[in-house]
Nucleic acid binder design. Structure first.
Lengths: 140, 140
DNA sequence: CAGTATAAATTGATATATCAATAATTGATA
DNA sequence: TATCAATTATTGATATATCAATTTATACTG
């Protein structure tokens, strides 16, 4: 039975959480996807980052990053700044609008995170983290 | 930091495991995606199942199931059997070729599952399962 | 029985995932 | 320095995710 497989439950947990956040984003009319939010958050946490680094941090494909950044640029939430010394890559950063957007909605997303671990002790969280890390290493 | 968020690690674990299996599938020339395999496995486990039920069991959207079944049908791995008493739905089952395919490759996929939990005791696995279930409930 | 609601599958539109191929640039080296 | 290799981003092709709308069929209700 597929439900008994741990990897299936891991995937399910990820999906359920993502769907919850997406529904909330939609309900609040944020006009953004969870993947887009994650990129904004990473850009917010790093001043000046390349697309390659963004891909690594977000665990996504560079091709996918290109396309999502196109959307975020269309929404005027991020900028692609040319780097004179290296014309192969851009520095990605938040626009004013993007920074305000992240600022405003960070509490909402943080509430989702908190909700996800409701009832889990510090120790529970550490345990879970450790077990996940071990599975990740097994699959390397 | 996004790496410190449990949901991020959960998502990462799911991605890493899926990528591992997909690479193996590709390496062996199975010509199938992980999502397609999951559908085949569920169909294998249930004699006669509707697309709606398949969507529920696989945690996927009915629209997505339609498209993936189209591909599996093109590969002649599954059949859509019309139900005379209810012409709104089909019974999905494995073709001879599909049954042979599942039979042949089940050991491979099972090895991936085993690899993923290498070094985890029975108790570890139960703990992990419980923690995941609690997060799932939190996000409902 | 007619009209309406519900249900299952499909289709369309848009976003994401992934691999392969390509373009432009930079680095390495003979 | 000229050539070749490696790097970064982009594009194309195909599969999947999701929502809304549609189609076809069945169920319900007055």
């Amino acid at each position: 039975m597929i439900e008994e497989i741990l990897l299936f439950q891991i995937d399910k947990t990820s999906k359920v959480a993502k769907q919850y956040s997406q529904r909330e984003f939609d309900r609040l009319g944020l006009n953004i996807t969870v993947e887009q939010w994650i990129l904004l958050k990473i850009v917010h946490e790093s001043n000046h980052i390349s697309q390659k680094e963004l891909a690594e941090k977000s665990l996504r494909d560079p091709a996918s990053i290109t396309r999502t950044l196109d959307l975020l640029q269309k929404k005027e939430l991020i900028n692609r700044l040319p780097i004179p010394e290296n014309r192969r890559q851009y520095n990605i950063n938040l626009s004013k609008k993007g920074a305000a957007f992240v600022q405003k909605n960070m509490p909402i997303v943080d509430a989702h995170r908190k909700k996800s671990i409701e009832g889990l002790s510090e120790k529970d969280q550490q345990t879970l983290n450790n077990l996940l890390k071990r599975i990740q290493e097994n699959m390397n």
